[in-house]
Nucleic acid binder design. Structure first.
Lengths: 100, 100
DNA sequence: TAGAATGTTCGTATATTTGCGAACAATAAA
DNA sequence: TTTATTGTTCGCAAATATACGAACATTCTA
């Protein structure tokens, strides 16, 4: 009975890494971090993909709780979820430390 | 003519993140980092997946150049690619710094 | 009320990822 | 030579991910 499986922490890191695993999402996070917040349109303007696809990537980053979005009719304002983003960074730092 | 696309650096980070985006691969890196090197069988022993699947994950980590594998008949010895791993960590640190 | 502006969702197509068992290759041992 | 040991590769199935246009919802404006 060895009950082999992944640890919670391994699952969490992998999940964050997966969310970061596409250049569009990296670009979005970089872009967002350069301003306090911005609208969907501003993000769409700098990415080489359709708005439907941008929306999808934003949704994934929201699901991973790395960003937040709130409606400001008729626009949607996005920003980094600072608290969780710091947490994510910490998880990675710890992982990196472990693997040195 | 705005030629929107992702930067080289964004592509690189996303690629590394993608390689880290599965708990099995996180587990493998953690396991490998706890020893100087080890054999396929040792890795297989601690993971909850078939050897075919372990082999596949190792292949991906090798493709991402995060680990190395060399044949020592009839075994295969795996180890972290220290040089590239340090580089990967640096890329992430820089990215994290940018997005603080 | 009709139209414009802003994003999201739906439907669809294609590609990639994940996983496994079976077959295979290479070497070592009986 | 036959058998065991150690991993990889193949073939397949199922699940996810990526991308887009079209349709839609919401709000604001004319």
């Amino acid at each position: 009975m060895e009950e082999k499986k992944y640890t919670e922490e391994q699952e969490r890191i992998a999940k964050i890494a997966k969310a970061l695993g596409h250049p569009a999402r990296i670009a979005i996070l970089e872009f967002l971090s350069n301003q306090d917040s911005c609208f969907f349109g501003n993000i769409y303007d700098v990415l080489p993909i359709s708005k439907a696809t941008v929306s999808q990537h934003l949704k994934e980053l929201k699901n991973a709780e790395l960003i937040k979005g709130e409606i400001e009719p008729p626009k949607v304002r996005y920003c980094i979820n600072r608290e969780n983003w710091e947490l994510a960074k910490k998880r990675f730092s710890d992982f990196f430390q472990k693997t040195q």
